[in-house]
């Protein structure tokens, strides 16, 4: 088995026949989602499954940049059970913070258990379409957004007030949650156009074969 640094901060390649990506586990021994833990030279790596996380899928599909750094403050919209957010938490480390916004109490219950172990994850039971509900969040370096809502670009724009100057955002769009009858490519083009009003598009990646009819945009806030 070979473990090498990827070109992205805090993300590693694990080669063992198949190529996988992983982060360094912030809480050694803790694997809340049944993920594989690999120990090498006293460092524990946590395998990041692209079938379970859209950001991992975007990395596997070769997204150009992943500008997340140690110590970053992150706003995560649509954190669900906190699975993807837990990897973001690994990357930003102890000095970083991940504000996890999720509206559904059922999945928030699972996220609470993760946050009790990972001290940089802050649970917020609120509606991402209404940032007023969590105005107390400080300015962040990065926004991740994965909400199944029709007006996704609009939601990111509304939340961009939390983003620092030149801050980045990654947004995962599922075409079916926007419109079930329209063609995915048309929906993605519409969203891209809407995002361009406020952001500069750095890269975009369709997520097949990991997710069907999904796309991830990496954007930067226009100065």
């Amino acid at each position: 088995m070979k473990i090498t640094k990827s070109k992205f901060e805090g993300i590693y390649w694990i080669e063992n026949g198949k190529k996988k990506i992983a982060t360094i586990n912030l809480v050694p021994g803790y694997a809340p989602f049944g993920e594989q833990l690999i120990k090498m030279n006293d460092v524990e790596y946590r395998v990041w499954n692209p079938h379970r996380s859209k950001w991992a899928a975007a990395i596997m599909k070769g997204i150009k940049e992943f500008p997340l750094k140690k110590g970053d403050k992150v706003l995560y919209l649509g954190a669900a059970s906190g699975q993807s957010a837990s990897y973001i938490s690994d990357i930003v480390g102890k000095d970083g913070k991940v504000f996890c916004v999720e509206i559904a109490p059922r999945v928030m219950r699972d996220l609470i258990f993760v946050a009790e172990k990972k001290e940089n994850m802050i649970p917020i039971l609120a509606d991402a379409t209404n940032p007023k509900e969590y105005e107390f969040v400080e300015k962040v370096d990065f926004i991740f957004q994965d909400v199944a809502m029709p007006n996704q670009a609009e939601i990111l724009k509304r939340n961009s007030k939390f983003l620092k100057k030149n801050g980045h955002a990654m947004i995962a769009v599922k075409s079916r949650s926007v419109d079930v009858s329209a063609k995915p490519s048309e929906i993605f083009a519409k969203i891209e156009k809407s995002l361009k009003e406020k952001f500069e598009i750095i890269d975009k990646k369709r997520l097949e074969p990991y997710e069907m009819d999904h796309i991830v945009f990496l954007v930067r806030q226009k100065g």
């Binding site: 109490p105 928030m108 009790e116």
Partner: peptide
């Protein structure tokens, strides 16, 4: 500790929302 506070606060919200 803001994080610990938010965990407890969210727990109460979950409980009250049922």
């Amino acid at each position: 500790n803001f994080q610990k506070f938010m965990i407890e606060f969210t727990k109460l919200k979950i409980k009250a929302g049922f």
